[in-house]
């Protein structure tokens, strides 16, 4: 299944993704403010199944987990970026949102259709016909994604013990 791409630049930080002033709101309302300081219409136009592609240090800043959480809430199924803020990277996998590091992010533009293989990191840009490369996810994080995040993972592991 192919996904539509939203393209952002470098240093998309957690205050842009989940602004502090709305942090007390329920998740679905907070999500309506996601990215609004740089693209006020993002939350209303994003669709289930879309993918974000961005430059360096995506998700840098705060440890607030609402940053990946609002993206999931809005239907984003993966983020591909040149690099990620370290805490965001951990948070994303804990919530079951794959974060793929790819130096090929420049070969994907807004509104392109792409196909992403989470296991191998292979990205097919349907719009341009190019095959692109993303880094393979470490084994322990792939386990989390397959379980649907850390909570379901703990749920089955604690039950097994």
């Amino acid at each position: 299944m192919s996904s539509r791409v939203w393209k952002f630049g470098d240093d998309i930080n957690t205050d842009i993704l989940a602004p502090g002033i709305y942090i007390k709101l329920p998740l679905n309302e907070l999500a309506q403010h996601c990215l609004e300081s740089i693209d006020p219409s993002f939350a209303s136009r994003v669709c289930e199944g879309d993918i974000i592609v961005a430059g360096n240090n995506f998700g840098m800043g705060s440890s607030r987990e609402q940053a990946p959480q609002v993206l999931k809430e809005l239907g984003i199924t993966a983020v591909i970026a040149a690099s990620f803020g370290g805490i965001f990277y951990r948070n994303a996998f804990n919530l079951g949102l794959p974060a793929i590091i790819s130096k090929d992010f420049t070969k994907i533009a807004a509104d392109h259709q792409i196909e992403l293989d989470i296991k191998t990191g292979r990205i097919c840009n349907i719009t341009t016909g190019q095959d692109l490369v993303g880094e393979k996810i470490p084994e322990n994080l792939l386990t989390l994604i397959e379980a649907g995040g850390l909570v379901p993972y703990l749920e089955s592991n604690l039950n097994n013990n």
Binding site: N91, N94, L150, V151, L154, L158
Partner: peptide
Amino acid sequence: GGDSHSPTGGAFGSYMFGIGATDMLGVLVT
């Protein structure tokens, strides 16, 4: 620490780093 500025603990020679809430859940449980 459940906060991004947790590296502050490094001033005391502690390996301290920030994690998110679900990561913290894992720590609190295990």
